[in-house]
Write a protein that binds this DNA or RNA. Structure first.
Length: 268
DNA sequence: ATGCCTCGCATCGCGAGA
């Protein structure tokens, strides 16, 4: 089971890139962020033609998240993060699909820092912490994936000193991310690649991608049952090099078959 | 110290992203 997260930076403008990547990478479940499109503008027909069912939570101009599946029914369990009825930003969707609970999130950027946007980010992380506490100990595998807008450590950034006053690398944001992991979540990429230079975002400016001047902010967090099945975790660099592409690139995990379940052996 | 690039929404620039 291949589960991916991809901040598309606008589903309308990037649809050709998304469809090309779906056909190439063949993920089973995908969470998308930054749809930047109202609810009615989601390209449902094109996604279905590519072989995926979808649920989505749009919003005009900004934010917006979606969950795609080519492995059967999506049973939506939540849309929007609990804890603040006044929060109208579309940043969280959660569903049971293929025997896995999958959460897709787009955590607030938080710049400029300090300021009200940074306060909103920390508050959002506080609410996320409270909600994920109820998911981490489930017997079923849980995958929490998305654009966290947090650079976890100095290993995850090309030039740490350039980011020291930024909301993505602020002490409080890093500490809040750390507190999530302390609940028992495993950062899949770092679990399998502890020391490697791995980025998921590069600015459009100054040939950042060509110079690999990036940051790692798109993450997949796994609870214990999911971690037991973790077979691979990788960043797919290919789409970032395409025309009219997002400034992020997809990140994915491969989960092996559930233990105790009959495995289908391919006959070659 | 700041802009760089790109987008949507809507003009002929602005806000937001990270």
């Amino acid at each position: 089971m291949k589960i991916a997260t991809y901040n598309v930076n606008g589903i309308s403008g990037r649809l050709p890139v998304l469809l090309r990547w779906l056909a190439l990478a063949e993920p089973d479940i995908v969470v998308l962020q930054e749809l930047k499109a109202p609810q009615e503008a989601f390209p449902k027909a094109a996604i279905e033609a590519a072989g995926y069912q979808a649920i989505w939570h749009g919003q005009s101009r900004w934010n917006g998240v979606a969950l795609l599946s080519r492995v059967g029914e999506i049973h939506e369990t939540r849309r929007g993060l609990p804890g603040d009825p006044k929060d109208e930003q579309s940043r969280y969707v959660e569903a049971a699909v293929g025997g896995i609970l999958v959460a897709g999130l787009y955590l607030p950027n938080g710049n400029p820092c300090p300021g009200p946007k940074f306060d909103y980010k920390l508050d959002w992380m506080e609410r996320l912490h409270a909600h994920l506490r109820s998911l981490v100990n489930l017997k079923a595998p849980v995958v929490v994936a998305g654009d966290f807008n947090v650079i976890p450590t100095e290993v995850d950034v090309y030039k740490p000193e350039r980011w020291k006053d930024d909301a993505l690398f602020a002490t409080e944001a890093k500490a809040a991310y750390r507190r999530l992991l302390d609940q028992g979540w495993v950062d899949a990429i770092r679990h399998l690649h502890p020391k490697e230079t791995i980025y998921t975002f590069w600015h459009y400016w100054r040939q950042s991608f060509e110079r690999n001047a990036g940051i790692r902010i798109d993450h997949l967090l796994l609870n214990k049952p999911a971690t037991k099945r973790l077979a691979a975790a990788e960043v797919d660099l290919r789409p970032r090099g395409w025309e009219k592409t997002s400034d992020h690139t997809p990140v994915w995990v491969e989960l092996g078959d559930a233990p105790g379940r009959k495995t289908k052996k391919k006959i070659s």
